[in-house]
Amino acid sequence: MKYLFERCHAGLICLCLMLYWPVANAHQMSTAYLQLSQSPLHVSPFETSAEVSATTPRLYGELQLRWFDLELVIGLDANTDGELSWAEVDARSSEIKGFVKQHLAILSAGNNCDLLLENDIQTDMHFDEGYLVLYFSSNCGLSVEDSQVAALTVQYSAIFTQDADHKLLVNADLFQRKYSGVIDAQNQRYLIEPESNPLLSIISTYIYQGVLHIFKGTDHILFLCALLLTCVLQRVNHQWQAKPQVKRVLKDTAWIITAFTVAHSLTLTATAMDIIVPSSRWVEFGIALSVMLTALNNIWPVVLRLGWITFAFGLLHGMGFAGVLGELGIDKDQKLLSVIAFNLGVELGQLLILAALLPILLYVGKRHWYQKYGLQASSAIIALIALQWCITRF
């Protein structure tokens, strides 16, 4: 009975790890962009600047959506040749604008603002992906001189049915302040208040996104798991044995987590601030390789002092975090604040994972089955997942 109980524990750990089996592109995100201003963001080639400034609408906007996302919901590729032509886009322009009006709304004092979409459809590129660009204006009654204006609410519901991880990044230059927020499937509205502090909004938004990313970043989670699987064990006579003192476990774990935190904080900040510009393809491959090598090191130990190797691999993971932050978008005027807040969110999520995992490891680390079978089986599963990443990301 005891033998069966131990095997069930080992199987449960393996099953939990298998539930985290990821998609190949762990960091590829579906992101849309919305910019709002009280000044024109675009002058139509058929209008002069004087004509635009004389018009009555006082709210101007620019919406960017991935062509790939629009293909999912509308089906723009009429001849199904895998390539989108301008003729195919132009033929469905009315449908595209109807889709935007159906899923994007701006409210002032609870009333819907009438969005006047420009006829011109334009394109842009973000992270080597094509984007639809639509400009619009509205007569929401905003005035630069009038400080007694109602709050604006942005409501957005596109793409979420097809991609639950889709996000809309909102940047607004209104009420003589700059605002930045994120709309996702869980919270499909963003409130812009004249009297609110936009800095607090930026901090809370990016801390939340940092926490969210560490929980969705399966490669980062499995890297932490691979590191922590041996934190309750020590190598004696070529065998894994439980560490005799909890104090030592906590000390060694703190050293590993600190090394990882310092390393990825450095490269996250440096990459996000454009101090270094690494190749995203090789960063993603390097992250997958780091997970695989760390897991294999648990099975065939070569490096027993994990602090420095954790620091080295942490540098790669920081560049991966920065890639996500870049896709999410950063307010140019609050770039450093956004980076710091996002990094704090990552650390918070990391500590939550550690708090959940460490008590379990302290319990199973004293069991013979874990020392002899559980560690190796769990590490082998992680290594196989990481190998699949390496192949697809190379």
Rank of each mutant, 00 (worst) to 15 (best):
F321W: 06
V144A: 11
E6I: 06
T48Q: 05
A185Q: 10
V154K: 00
L107E: 08
H9W: 13
S147N: 14
T230H: 01
L296F: 10
W255K: 15
T271K: 08
I192K: 01
S39F: 09
V302S: 10
E71S: 02
V52T: 13
R367T: 13
I276V: 04
S138M: 04
L357G: 08
V364T: 06
F285G: 01
S338K: 06
I382C: 07
L352P: 04
S94C: 00
Y131K: 03
I360K: 07
V73D: 14
S204Q: 13
N343Y: 09
W21Q: 06
L116M: 13
Y3S: 13
L289D: 09
Q176F: 10
I203T: 06
L212W: 09
G374Q: 11
I256E: 01
A164C: 01
R189I: 03
G141I: 11
N119W: 11
D184Q: 06
H220W: 02
G98M: 08
Y206W: 06
V249R: 09
R367P: 07
L19R: 04
Q162P: 00
L348D: 02
R58N: 15
W300L: 14
D163H: 10
F311L: 08
F160D: 10
L250W: 14
F321I: 02
I106C: 07
H213A: 05
V283G: 02
Q64M: 12
G329W: 01
G130P: 07
Q241F: 03
T56L: 13
E6V: 05
A355I: 05
F394R: 11
A377E: 07
V100A: 08
I309P: 00
A341W: 00
I309T: 11
K247A: 15
S30T: 14
Q35W: 09
D274S: 13
L104K: 00
L152F: 13
G141F: 07
G11D: 01
P359A: 05
C113Q: 00
Y135E: 03
R189K: 14
P22E: 10
Q388N: 14
I391Q: 09
F160S: 05
H220N: 04
Q102D: 14
I106L: 10
Q28E: 15
L337E: 03
R305F: 09
M292T: 12
V324F: 09
F68A: 15
V89I: 12
D114E: 14
Y190N: 10
N343A: 12
A377N: 11
L65H: 02
V154F: 07
R92T: 08
I106T: 07
V236N: 08
I207N: 00
E51L: 10
R189H: 15
F175T: 06
R92G: 01
F342Q: 05
Q186I: 02
S204V: 10
A24V: 07
L337Q: 08
F46K: 14
P244L: 08
A150V: 02
S201I: 11
H27Q: 09
A270L: 15
N139E: 13
D69E: 12
L70G: 05
A272F: 04
